[in-house]
Amino acid sequence: MEWFDTFFTGLWTGLGRVSLDTIVQGVLTGGLYALYAAGLSLIFGVMGLVNLAHGDLIVLAAYAIVAMVTAWGLPVWVALLIAMPFLFAFGFGLQRVVLNRTLRSGLLVPLLVTFGIAIIIQNGLLEVFSADSQRLRFGAIETQSIDLGIATVGVFRLLTLGVAVAVILALSFLFYGTRQGRMLRATSDSAEYVQLMGVNPRIVFAIAMGISFLVIGIAAMFMGVTNFFPTSGPANLLTAFEAVVIGGLGSLWGTLVGGIIIGIAQNIGAAIDPGWQQLGGHIVFLVIVLLRPRGLFSK
């Protein structure tokens, strides 16, 4: 039982390295995961569609920003702002022309179609941009940090969390404070009977996908500060999925909490052993799914 002793000695030693700083850094990492997950959660909440291309769409948006920055020498923020209307239009069009048709055909067809889109995006990016890594450059802000007393944190990571909270706040306001949000919620309740209210659910779904693509653009920008590849999408999708499921399907604030829980778990995993970073997130995900299969804040 030598391996057993080695394992537990390593575990205890590693846990000893977990500090408040580990938790704080985990919360900040969670901000990025919440951004990955928010668009996925929105689409699942409104139309019950599991978008398997979500992670790859984030990567595609990041490459689009890279292309604009390279071609026109724009700052990343400006490139994102220019891309926003096109992202909305792309999401709207994709839903209107392709995905709406799949929703009539049961659960399997949308899964297969979005899986196909994911493969097309990965291979298309490999063809156009090669397998080399890319990243977005934000200048000095990438390396700046501030001392919060309990921990020193990177300004860019803090900004990422702040934007994640702002995105969730904005989506919550849209859903619960506007006429359009009322339509989104009613369409989510019944796409058939909302028609009796003069609402075309296909248009509502397309608008929801357009909004999801705006969030995808924001997530892409913050993901881009670290290296990414044409094949980075599935890992993003997995993290986003875990955050959505932990938070409770369709719950926006739950998605933020889910992202933060994964971020903390990954950082604790990494503190124990660098090879345990991803594992830490997956273990917590499995434990929560076992204890609360519908997530922490399911509707």
């Binding site: 919620r185 009613a186 989510s188 309740d189 009977y193 909302v194 009796l196 003069g198 609402v199 509707k299």
Partner: peptide, 18 residues
């Protein structure tokens, strides 16, 4: 077939959309 996510007033207001 009321919309469960909506309050009474929201259910009425969404009717006005038609």
């Amino acid at each position: 077939r009321l919309f469960p996510s909506l309050s009474v007033e929201e259910n009425l207001l969404i009717g006005a959309n038609g």
